[in-house]
């Protein structure tokens, strides 16, 4: 059965979550490469759609720290509340 965008999104979400638990940050390209290497029938547009879905739904957010990363939503370290 062909892999769905929802499943790619879930896998990407888990990758980000696991990385964040050990203090690592992942770039969108890291997620895309890992998923493309794992599944033969996944192409770049599918990985982009999965990322768009994750960000549009608020499960992941973009962050910038020298480069652009994807992270779980969290309180900004530098924020003045």
């Amino acid at each position: 059965m062909a892999i769905t965008i929802d499943r790619i999104a879930d896998e990407m979400f888990e990758m980000v979550k696991e990385a964040q638990e050990v203090g690592k940050k992942l770039k969108p390209m890291d997620l895309q490469k890992t998923i493309k290497n794992k599944y033969d029938d996944v192409d770049k547009p599918m990985t982009k759609k999965a990322i768009k879905q994750l960000v549009d739904s608020g499960r992941l957010v973009y962050s910038y720290f020298g480069g652009t990363f994807l992270e779980l939503p969290h309180r900004e370290g530098a924020a003045n509340d």
């Binding site: 957010v61 973009y62 962050s63 910038y64 720290f65 969290h74 900004e76 530098a78 924020a79």
Partner: peptide, 19 residues
């Protein structure tokens, strides 16, 4: 201070965070 996470929903660019 640099803010890295602020932005608008769905976009990863266009906002540069500062505090």
């Amino acid at each position: 201070k640099h803010g890295g996470i602020v932005g608008v929903m769905g976009y990863g660019g266009g906002v540069i965070g500062r505090y």
